[in-house]
């Protein structure tokens, strides 16, 4: 009766030893390899710091101009350009310029990392069902595991700072680009591929000439999602020492500063909307030839 009433768990002592074992072997690993791993990420740190400094050193009118030009190149929509520039003007006016530049830096670098890791993994998954079987559950875990859980080992290994923050952001933001690259390539029509094969196309020509261009709208949707998820990690990243808009948000939570939290939160939302509209419009333009609209 007692057996059924209480789950036959490990005894408290056993469990303690089990956890201790894991903890101590991980600390051992950390003390042995922590420095090596840290120095491995050094170039990344330098790049991030350099980029952040660059953004901060650039005169604000120039940044506004760059924002305008990028929005125009991406969206070809005057409305979006005006909206983007106005949003940045407001951000500056309310004294959030510096934090916004820091956030912009980490989100940009994280996105670049995710693209350069995620697209090749997506290609690999589209090519081999074994790769697909290996990566799919991994991506599921990355997307669902609470961020705080993987922050623990990352912080144990690398301490508090920009690099662990960046890694945390990347773990969370990587899955969509991988998934959508894989999906996009798998959705390329059989007819288009058969025609390519019939003309003697080799693997490289097939990948870069047919599969990736045809998957591009999906890949772009993936990039859009990745940027959005990176932005949504800003507050959590600031908990482990990443500068940016997340820091004042955290401060206002602990001190109950309503206005400060609201303003910085809205700045994150504004960034998200700008990035989203610009990349979505760009993605739509990539798809244009499929719908028979006349090409400029």
């Amino acid at each position: 009766m007692d057996f059924l009433g209480k789950f036959p768990a490990m005894s408290r002592g056993e469990l303690r030893d089990f956890k201790k074992g894991i903890d101590s072997s991980f600390s051992e690993f950390t003390s042995e390899h922590g420095e090596a791993i840290e120095s491995f990420f050094d170039p990344l740190l330098h790049f991030l710091v350099w980029f952040e400094k660059l953004l901060l050193a650039t005169p604000w009118p120039l940044i506004l101009l760059i924002i305008g030009v990028f929005s125009w190149l991406g969206s070809r929509s005057v409305k979006i350009v005006i909206g983007a520039v106005l949003a940045f003007v407001a951000i500056g006016y309310f004294g959030m310029w510096k934090d916004t530049m820091s956030t912009l830096a980490i989100v940009s670098v994280a996105t670049l990392i995710c693209i350069s890791i995620g697209i090749p993994i997506g290609i690999l998954m589209a090519r081999s069902k074994y790769a697909q079987a290996f990566f799919t559950p991994l991506l599921d875990v990355m997307q669902t595991i609470p961020a705080f859980v993987y922050l623990i080992p990352v912080v144990m290994l690398l301490g508090i700072g920009k690099v662990p923050g960046l890694i945390a952001v990347c773990i969370y933001a990587l899955p969509p680009i991988v998934r959508l690259t894989n999906l996009g390539i798998r959705l390329v029509s059989k007819e288009a591929l058969e025609a390519a094969d019939a003309f003697g196309t080799n693997y490289r020509q097939r990948l870069f000439g047919v599969q990736i261009p045809l998957a591009l709208p999906n890949i772009f949707a993936g990039i859009n999602q990745t940027i959005m998820m990176a932005l949504s990690m800003v507050v959590i990243a600031s908990m482990i020492g990443v500068a940016g808009l997340g820091v004042p948000v955290l401060r206002s939570i602990s001190n109950q500063y309503l206005a400060l939290g609201l303003l910085n939160g809205l700045a994150i939302v504004a960034l998200a909307i700008i990035f989203d509209r610009v990349t979505q419009q760009y993605g739509k333009r990539l798809q244009k030839h499929r719908h028979g609209d006349l090409h400029e």
Binding site: E191, E194, A198, F199, G200, P213, H289
Partner: peptide, 17 residues
């Protein structure tokens, strides 16, 4: 396939991009 034999398809098999 590159030099000796070419193919035309029922569903055209064109590259839409």
């Amino acid at each position: 396939r590159r030099h000796k034999v070419a193919m035309v398809f029922q569903k055209f098999g064109l590259h839409v991009h």
